[in-house]
Nucleic acid binder design. Structure first.
Length: 568
DNA sequence: TTTGCGACTTGACATGACCTAC
DNA sequence: GTAGGTCATGTCAAGTCGCAAA
């Protein structure tokens, strides 16, 4: 029997495909029931107040809460919302409320704004009380026992009902996400565990004991009909082990990537169209870190693509552009409808192949018509055990970080300067992976504030320098101990201010360069944490400067095991 | 071979907690 | 103490990929 105080990364792993032997938990926490609006808060139809039935009112509040959001101005959103809302109405309501444009939710909207304002204005004691209640819920429902460990659950609260917020041009935006009841929930736990109890008067849909999966509970959502899960926190053994394994697979790719590259370059010359397509697609995945690009059901989701699902309309070929030859311009919407735009020169063979793939095709035709992710991944599997398209993203991200850190870290730099270098290396990866963010709403202003600080510091510095100069002159004249001391004091002051100024300037540079780039995703999902840990150890950077508390918990295994000479 | 489903990872954004300058 | 800003944490949508059934 394994000692429960051992960290999981020093334990044996299961080799039979099972994920656990023992699993006990208390089940999910349900969304609080709907609280009807006070009578004074009115909904108006066609200018006249109208009392809604509770179910219709609840759905109306979902819309009312979003009035300030761009969503509610979109046609599809309004149409989908109205259709689903009407399903919740009584027949009288249905016959009366026939036009969303005649609905006035303003009072409801104001009410919710006032509520959230009131929440902010609550006294310390009230806030403390809420905090304690949350803590109690976390202690009771937020943990489970998996094998010998007490583990944190990632999402123990069931998603509350609301209006579906799809990203990009989603055909289903605005649809009603219905309330999940115990009768919708499948519980997964071990037979010999104390089973979670459903709320009084209710039943679970099913209780099963499947140790080939990692989830504790699941339900089917009503928008896409997909299954949602309650799973463990990233700090858990079950997630950590998998994460570690992912980086080990990427490291194995490192060993054979040269060979794979040689092969796909060779395949550009293949007699078979499908092989050429596969080889060009793989080149893009490798060079540009594109996602695989599964097919999607048309009309069910936003129209986005990845590598294999690229269409003719998404690329443009330029035999010559400025001083470069064979340039490919990519312009498409990727995951989450984030735009990918890139112009890159490619090798002549790739270019000629692309021209060939484009022949006699319409803009909406597939670029790689003889290829899909399943074909590609089957091929990759033959090249290396466990190799799939996404391993290239992991590999290229991690190797880029390692190489950039080597290149950018100056041994003599101060700690803040070294951290800037780290962030720059991280940024190179984020750019490679196209991890974007909307510039923070307060960006311009906070940048200005920082600049003001820098200016002030600069003034301080010149003042301090003047004082130092004066002190030196004084000392030269008097040669006494007192003036000597004064010089030292002033010198130290100048030095301190210089450092402060440097720190501010570094901060400004970092922030400016980071305006539209999101570092979090790559840090959390693509960069082998051992690279960062090793870098910290090598340069004496406290790990807290790189990883916050949550991240340190997730990467505890790496922090424990990576030494300063770790090589990805 | 195609399709759909299930399980899991990845992703941007919203929200809440906390910190700092006034 | 508070307003404003920043950072951590939570949310939940949207991908990837394997597998089994059609």
């Amino acid at each position: 029997q394994i000692c429960s105080c051992d960290p999981w990364w020093e334990e044996e792993r299961y080799t039979d495909g099972s994920k656990w032997r023992f699993l006990e938990h208390k089940g999910p926490v349900f969304a609080p029931p709907y609280e009807p609006l006070p009578d004074k808060v009115k909904f108006y139809y066609d200018g006249k107040p109208m009392k809604l039935s509770a179910p219709a009112e609840e759905v109306a509040t979902f819309f009312a809460k979003m009035l300030d959001h761009e969503y509610t101005t979109k046609d599809i959103f309004r149409k989908n919302f109205f259709k689903d809302w009407r399903k919740e109405m009584t027949s009288e309501e249905k016959s009366k409320i026939t036009d969303l444009n005649k609905c006035n939710f303003a009072e409801m909207n104001e009410y919710f704004k006032a509520q959230s304002e009131a929440r902010k204005q609550m006294s310390k004691e009230e806030k403390q009380k809420i905090k304690e209640e949350n803590e109690r819920l976390l202690q009771e429902y937020g943990f489970c026992i998996m094998d010998n460990h007490k583990e944190r659950i990632g999402n123990f609260r069931i998603e509350p009902p609301g209006l579906f917020r799809g990203r990009g041009d989603h055909p289903k935006m605005g649809m009603l996400k219905r309330r999940i009841r115990p009768e919708d929930i499948i519980i997964n736990c071990s037979k010999d565990s104390k089973q979670p109890k459903p709320p009084p008067g209710t039943k679970w849909k099913e209780v099963r004991h499947d140790n080939k999966v990692t989830w504790l509970a699941s339900w089917t959502e009503n928008i896409q009909g997909s299954i949602k899960y309650i799973m463990l926190n990233p700090s858990s053994r079950i997630k950590g082990e998998k994460d570690w394994q992912k980086y080990e697979t990427a490291r194995r790719l490192k060993k054979c990537v040269d060979h794979i590259r040689t092969q796909y370059r060779d395949d550009w010359k293949s007699k078979e169209m499908r092989i050429r397509q596969r080889a060009v697609a793989l080149y893009f995945i490798d060079k540009l870190a594109l996602r695989a690009g599964n097919e999607k059901e048309e009309g069910e989701t936003a129209d986005t693509v990845g590598c294999c699902s690229l269409r003719v309309e998404h690329i443009k070929l330029y035999p010559k552009m400025d001083d470069q030859e064979y340039v490919v311009e990519f312009d498409f919407l990727g995951k989450d409808s984030i735009r990918y735009y890139n112009k890159i020169p490619v090798e002549k063979r790739v270019f000629k192949n692309l021209q060939l793939f484009l022949e006699n095709k319409q803009p909406e035709d597939d670029l790689f018509d003889r290829l899909n992710t399943s074909i590609l991944n089957k091929h990759l599997q033959e090249l290396m055990d466990g190799l799939t398209a996404k391993v290239f993203r992991t590999y290229n991200a991690s190797i880029t970080l390692q190489q950039q850190l080597k290149e950018l870290t100056c041994p003599d730099d101060s700690i803040p300067a070294k951290i800037l270098s780290y962030n720059r290396a991280n940024r190179a990866v984020a750019i490679l992976c196209n991890h974007q963010r909307a510039p923070p709403k307060t960006f311009e202003k906070s940048m200005q504030n920082l600049q003001t600080k820098i200016d002030e510091k600069q003034n301080q510095l010149s003042a301090a320098r003047k004082q130092l100069k004066a002190a030196k002159a004084e000392h030269k004249a008097s040669h006494d101990d007192k003036s000597k001391k004064a010089v030292e004091v002033k010198r130290k002051a100048v030095h301190r201010i210089e450092e402060q100024l440097m720190k501010l300037q570094v901060q400004a540079t970092d922030r400016e360069e980071n305006k539209q780039i999101a570092l979090g995703t790559s840090k959390l999902n693509y960069l082998d944490p051992r690279i960062s840990v090793a870098w910290c150890k090598k340069w004496g950077i406290p790990i807290e400067k790189i990883y916050n508390k949550t991240q340190r918990e997730k990467f505890a295994w790496a922090i424990d095991m990576a030494e300063k000479d770790y090589e990805f």
